[in-house]
């Protein structure tokens, strides 16, 4: 009698477990769809022939796979924006990493007056550069009063500054695991300060440098608002502005827009897929301390 009951309850438990599993799969699919819906629909739209983008009812796939929209955007202003943003990001990463590495090294290895003040400046700069709408008008008025708008270096300067705090913070975290003894030993052997930094510490900090580079890249590649007011020549537009411009005066050109948007997301997803773990640990540094 007793064992019978047990069996029944075990049976329902098994059933329940199975149901739980299905419910979890459904939940998982739901999360996938909601998170990726715009990108998937954008990709599908971008591959339809021009005539079929605006046809109704909307179909999942066009009558054939067509690259017309991609050819169009790469012949047009989007290509300029894509190329410009590659250059801007590369400059921002190179300069940003150099400056951030130096600052992080100073913060983690030396004691000096004003250290705490600078640290608080860095820390408060992290959230400030995440949301920059309060900076749009100040950056525009200040830069234009000095005649620094609409130059090839305008946006790289902005991107470096916005992303420096996060980069310094990430590299500081990485330096914690580079033993100070290495510096000290080299010092005793007579190595100069700069040599220790660039010859010894930098090669040991490559993972955190990669993580910082990722943050700078994402910040530079994705920035829209400040970029859109600080440069006004089409030849200097970054990628996000060139995408936004498909919302033209005469209505939105959905086909080219989807092709441009899809193209713009590919590099982001590629680096994110490779360096995702670093991004997550960079994001959560400070929230948990082990």
């Amino acid at each position: 009698m007793r064992s019978n009951q047990m069996q029944v309850s075990l049976g329902t438990l098994e059933k329940w477990k199975k149901w739980l599993h299905i419910y979890e799969v459904v939940l998982f699919l739901f999360v996938v769809i909601v998170n990726l819906a715009p990108f998937i629909w954008g990709l599908l739209t971008s591959l339809k022939p021009v005539r079929e983008v605006l046809s109704y009812p909307p179909k999942l796939f066009g009558s054939q796979v067509s690259t017309e929209h991609y050819e169009e955007v790469f012949r047009g202003t989007f290509f300029t924006g894509f190329r410009n943003s590659l250059i801007y990001s590369a400059i921002a990463i190179a300069v940003g990493l150099l400056f951030a590495m130096m600052a992080a090294y100073a913060m983690s290895r030396f004691r000096f007056r004003g250290k705490k003040l600078f640290f608080i400046l860095i820390l408060s700069g992290i959230p400030l550069s995440i949301g920059s709408a309060a900076m749009v008008v100040p950056n525009y008025t200040f830069f234009s009063s000095l005649g620094l708008t609409n130059q090839w270096y305008t946006l790289p300067i902005i991107y470096v500054a916005y992303n420096l705090p996060m980069a310094i913070w990430v590299i500081m975290g990485g330096l914690e695991s580079v033993p100070v003894q290495i510096d000290e030993a080299a010092k005793i052997d007579g190595a100069g300060n700069w040599r220790i930094l660039f010859g010894l510490v930098v090669p040991l900090s490559l993972p955190s440098l990669a993580s910082a580079a990722l943050f700078i890249f994402l910040g530079a590649w994705n920035e829209y608002v400040v970029s859109s007011v600080l440069v006004s020549s089409a030849s200097l537009y970054p990628i996000q502005v060139s995408i936004y411009n498909y919302m033209g005066f005469y209505g939105i050109q959905w086909g080219p827009l989807c092709a441009a948007a899809t193209t713009a997301v590919v590099p982001t997803l590629a680096v994110f897929a490779i360096l995702g773990r670093m991004l997550i640990s960079g994001l959560t540094a400070g929230a948990v301390k082990d």
């Binding site: 715009p38 996000q240 948007a261 994110f272 991004l279």
Partner: peptide, 15 residues
């Protein structure tokens, strides 16, 4: 779930 956070806001919103 982090994809919407790391991708461009212009792209996400317009799509």
């Amino acid at each position: 779930v982090l994809i919407p956070w790391v991708t461009s806001q212009v792209v996400g919103t317009l799509l």
